[in-house]
Write a protein that binds this DNA or RNA. Sequence first.
DNA 1: CTTGCGCCCGACAACGTTGTCACGTCACTG
DNA 2: CAGTGACGTGACAACGTTGTCGGGCGCAAG
Lengths: 356, 356
Amino acid sequence: MTSVSGDSSPSATRRRPTMRDVARLAGVGIKTVSRVVNGEPNVSAATAERVRRAAAELFYEPDLHAGNLRRADGRSRTLGLLVSSVANPFAAQVHRAIERVATERGYAVFAASLEDDPGAELRAVTALAQRRVDGFIVTPVRDDQSYLRVHTDRGTPLVCLDREPHGIETDSVVTSNVEGARDAVRHLVSYGHRRIAFLGDLERIKTASLRRDGYVRGLTAAGIEVDPALIVLGLHDDATATAVARRLLTLPDPPTAIFSSQNLITIGTIRALQQLGLEHEVALVGFDDVETGDLIKPAITTISQDADRIGRLAAERLFARLDGDTSAPRHVVVPTRLVVRGSGEIPGPAALHRTR
Amino acid sequence: MTSVSGDSSPSATRRRPTMRDVARLAGVGIKTVSRVVNGEPNVSAATAERVRRAAAELFYEPDLHAGNLRRADGRSRTLGLLVSSVANPFAAQVHRAIERVATERGYAVFAASLEDDPGAELRAVTALAQRRVDGFIVTPVRDDQSYLRVHTDRGTPLVCLDREPHGIETDSVVTSNVEGARDAVRHLVSYGHRRIAFLGDLERIKTASLRRDGYVRGLTAAGIEVDPALIVLGLHDDATATAVARRLLTLPDPPTAIFSSQNLITIGTIRALQQLGLEHEVALVGFDDVETGDLIKPAITTISQDADRIGRLAAERLFARLDGDTSAPRHVVVPTRLVVRGSGEIPGPAALHRTR
DNA sequence: CTTGCGCCCGACAACGTTGTCACGTCACTG
DNA sequence: CAGTGACGTGACAACGTTGTCGGGCGCAAG
């Protein structure tokens, strides 16, 4: 086998070969190389083989972006995913599901963490738009997503994830937040609870207020009056959740059950219950699955989101748009699942038919 | 303000404006637009303002890749991250740390999950190489990474993460697997244990065998003979770990302590201990932190990896190379931290000086 | 033997941008 | 008042690739 070209400068970094280099080595025109690399027809078997051999010898890698610049469809085979944080277990699982669909299609995924920072949303969209992603999957953070219309108008589809967008009509895939929260309350009510506390995230985060709405709806449906003293929003980390839960539980007339409407809040609440030795007395249902929730005593009952399905559906929606689907925007709601494990089945005072 | 150009076709997707469009609207040359967009000097304040206004009116977004093609440094301001799975909590945290450093530098991150599939490693590298990433951060899966030399030779730096590469000399950032495992054993020995089981991942995964080595070293240092019956490798999910742990614990002469050398294995082991009602009798130390490990009874003692630091260091190493550092490859070992929480402090038979 | 057609192949322009260079203007300097 | 240099600006080529087109060749049909 021939040595790799031009060894003039000893330790200098070798230049990356282009189609021209491959063409020269194979003794063909540059367009023929292009044809072979892209599997286009009308190249004789012998020529194709020579080209392939030359490309392999030079370790030639086509430049997708250069091709893209000229190519008719102009697709970068790249998509952008904006989530709260790639380190967040829910988002990470969604990410993985999206990646699976994307990889199958030959797409690569840019992931960006927003950390609920409206500025970060804008910066990330800009950064990815300049890299010419073919589509966006976004967890909205700002109050208004109308600025994304520029991109959708230019043919870059957008699917919103986990939260509905504002100021733009586009596809979305969200969890059934209201229904899930209502189910949690209904479950607790069925175990005899009437004083059920609600712990939620920052109210400006839409999912937090939706879950609050579901909670209220659940109580109302059961004919239970809503006690504002038992509703706390604005919790964004487990430490604060612990503090607030402790305060509620040491009230003169404390709740007999708690619905914690987000992962970290649930963890903080469990800690509070354990600190007060109440984990077997006060019922708890958490929204969002807690990893290893079955190893905790009592095991944690949750309203669990189907992250995998959410991610997959969002990606499939995006690719449908890329494939030319121009139908009206679809709003997919993925149902939650009640995972009964113990903490949510601790009976309350009105559970006359139960012992203990 | 003027209306956005050419409204001839009513609902057709608008063409994306180029520098030429901005130049025309601002009444300047295309190069002047380039200068303004890139903040180059030698443009009068008035002209710059006109250009900026035109760009804003058209919602112009420069095409990074087109610029890149021509630009001297040829940097795509993009890097590729290959991990076991973006859904894996450890990898996800590493990812987040890398992203933080990258964002600060104006870099976007491609993430790809390999799922320990050697073929996936190759495919991901190719996909990202064709997208001209400026650097790779890779968790090696294959037996041999020498194929990556092509890319490093061409000036695309490579930092290996979590595992040392083979067949190539390059920067790496890994956890102190051997020492961490040794510490776990030492800790258990100090609590009076002599029959300590080892549960590990697939042996072909390097970190698994390193931790086994550390375990052996720990025993040897304490003058304890290694009992092959207490060593099981090849576990890759929690269900199998549970089964194996149950088998070990029901042996005629069962271990009094277990060192589970990976996250999922630890979870599986806890489940086995709980099923057998032994969680307060048999000591357990896990490698890799277990989320909510403090909420489990007993709380789980772990050898915890500093994912954040590992990610940050890897990213910083990569950027140092991109900034021109040509010194010899550095191999950074990030120490583990023993997190004492309870499960690892259950005394063993030789703990004469302790009560129970 | 022509004609026509299909196949193989390469020259050339173009994609959207930046590097190079040259030109014109203006304020200084000598 | 000529010479000099700095500044502001745009024409043009080039980056690596693909779309277009046309030329050459071989073969079947007329």
